[in-house]
């Protein structure tokens, strides 16, 4: 295509978890504005492989903005300059010919770099393990319509449940806080009647795990909400704080009873 863009990329390269990394410059020539950002990286990588170079490792999978696997810092913004858009859905028409683009991995103590732009986000899974679920073993459910849920509650639960676990909130937060991620799950489940029995236990244990993973605290900068490709609101964080406070005030000791049954 004649209207191809010629760009300069500054990309973080790091051979492995313990290797030292550095920014390396690449020329990306004749890039179609119709390409997605990751397709642009594909093209750069294909050329690198063909010329005997070492392709840039980056995480990606669905390429339609829902799996949450992709995510890099693009010119200082998580997932790049477009609101409500993951890196895979960001298109090169957002950039101009001659632009310089800085590409870095998510940076947080809780997200150690694996290679180049790939980071380890297993901390987010462990936060879910700490209580981001409703204990309803298969087979134990009553009829789906037995418990009516006000539409607004269901809608608000869905708003929070839209989280794709990409980690952009952590990446964009000046404190590397995982509060938006954690609170989105607490809010999703806490809005639903099925989530009530474990609600306060969940708030305490998920927050404890979030801290344990080395994420920072929330200072309400609001950067997470802006970076979130799914538009999750910091109202979730308010909900988490409220649940946490209430849980702390009302927590009772669990009695251990042996030999029941």
């Amino acid at each position: 295509m004649s209207a191809g863009l010629n760009l300069t990329l500054h990309v973080w390269r790091q051979a492995g978890p313990n290797a030292a990394g550095r920014m390396v410059d690449y020329k990306a020539t004749d890039i179609s504005p119709e390409m997605s950002f990751l397709e642009m990286l594909d093209v750069v990588n294909e050329r690198l492989i063909e010329s005997g170079g070492d392709p840039i490792a980056f995480d990606h999978d669905c390429r339609e903005g829902i799996c949450g696997m992709c995510g890099v810092m693009i010119n200082g913004a998580a997932h790049g300059p477009m609101k409500l858009t993951t890196a895979c859905q960001l298109h090169m028409r957002t950039f101009k010919d001659g632009d310089e683009i800085t590409i870095e991995p998510w940076r947080a103590a809780g997200f150690p770099v694996v290679r180049d732009l790939v980071v380890d986000r297993s901390a987010l899974d462990r936060i879910i393990q700490a209580g981001g679920y409703i204990s309803a073993p298969t087979g134990s459910a009553q009829d789906a319509n037995a418990l009516p849920i006000p539409k607004q509650d269901a809608d608000e639960a869905m708003d929070a449940a839209a989280c794709i676990g990409c980690g952009a909130c952590v990446a964009a937060c000046p404190n590397s806080s995982a509060s938006l991620f954690t609170s989105a799950k607490i809010t999703h489940l806490g809005k639903l009647p099925q989530g009530q029995p474990e609600r306060y236990r969940r708030a305490l244990s998920m927050v404890a795990q979030m801290d344990l993973e080395g994420f920072g605290g929330c200072t309400l900068f609001g950067e997470c909400q802006e970076a979130c490709p799914k538009g999750i609101s910091i109202d979730s964080i308010t909900q988490m704080n409220r649940d946490y406070l209430w849980a702390s005030l009302t927590k009772r000791e669990e009695k251990k009873v042996a030999g029941a049954g």
Binding site: M73, A77, R107, S176, G214, G216, E223, E226
Partner: peptide
């Protein structure tokens, strides 16, 4: 705690909405 949460900083991070 917040400082320790980002041991290696970005080369470039642009605040988007923070006041």
């Amino acid at each position: 705690r917040n400082r320790a949460a980002r041991p290696a900083d970005y080369a470039l991070r642009e605040p988007q909405v923070s006041t």
